[in-house]
Nucleic acid binder design. Sequence first.
DNA 1: TCCGCCATGTAACCTGTTACATGATTTT
DNA 2: AAAATCATGTAACAGGTTACATGGCGGA
Lengths: 189, 189
Amino acid sequence: MARRSQTETAVLGGLSMHPMTAYALREAIRDVLGHFWSESFGQIYPTLNALEQQGHVERREGPRSGSSTFVITESGTARLRELLSEPITAAPPRNGLLLRLFFGRVLGAEKCRELLLEAKADAERSLAEYDHLARTLSAEEEGSADLPYVLMTVSAGRHDAEGVLAWIGEALALLGDAPANDAPANGES
Amino acid sequence: MARRSQTETAVLGGLSMHPMTAYALREAIRDVLGHFWSESFGQIYPTLNALEQQGHVERREGPRSGSSTFVITESGTARLRELLSEPITAAPPRNGLLLRLFFGRVLGAEKCRELLLEAKADAERSLAEYDHLARTLSAEEEGSADLPYVLMTVSAGRHDAEGVLAWIGEALALLGDAPANDAPANGES
DNA sequence: TCCGCCATGTAACCTGTTACATGATTTT
DNA sequence: AAAATCATGTAACAGGTTACATGGCGGA
């Protein structure tokens, strides 16, 4: 089995967009793939060394003394294509919010409501970020062949956040929310 | 400290509903919390032993020779309440589908479309399961104080699946799929 | 009788995060 | 000159899965 399962994919994928240092790669992953992926230095550096030894990336002079810019090779691109074609290994689900709500009788309705309101604020913040991101990317990367794919992932985030918001409305209703500041009830159920 | 394990929470939570063996606990987690949580034997057994030593659960005669039924104690319930009140430790995001789509230019539009159609089928299957689950639970657990909380988590699953379906429609459009063979745009059902 | 499920546990093995150690370069 | 940022890497540890080892019990 693949040792560094999907880290290899993320690293090669990042370098497939343009060459960069390990440090920049991590920043790119954090800033651009952040809503759906993450990697830490502790994974990135060893993975890059392994990929270099396999000839999938090459080390070039970096922007500073002692730093290296990594460039993906032909074989690296082939390897990436291979990795992207492998079946998706889904992480076992672990949703801390739902775990708490499931045992809501023990936690208490009031705390549950608080959790839901927090989650609502988070989702709203995310939504705004996705909108901003979509606009920025559409402008900056206009015409790029990558753009539709990138926008697809942003769209996933938006729909997810919207789904969460819709759910929270329903969940608060299940908790028997009373406050009169709420929106009118919807017709169907 | 490093992020705490929520296994303790899940185990105490499970036992808070009713006493059972470690084996049954794992089955319950798989079958009932399955859409948003998972635990393996390798976690459950050591956790139960630790909880027993702390006096949070007690070991009783099990349904078979050599088996034990675990019962949550007063202090166990208090501990559970405490754990449920702790801040949620979110797992770093890792969505293998979005990772593949992001690098879709390398993978190729055709493969991307296939991935999306697979995901669509999954989401539709999930949706049906959630609907079935909601109906079954509403009937079986009618009047239970746990019911609204349980339904809340099912509702989360449903909204998530719906969000995925909505997203997939948009994503396929971004891929430049053929005309409107689908019926995506019109009102929610 | 034999198979499959209930039941308990452990050990090996990954995968991945965090903290640490180190230093160069840019900015203030 | 000090502080922030860029940059590289390692070691320790946490959290978790899988495979294995073991055995009782019920039904075909």
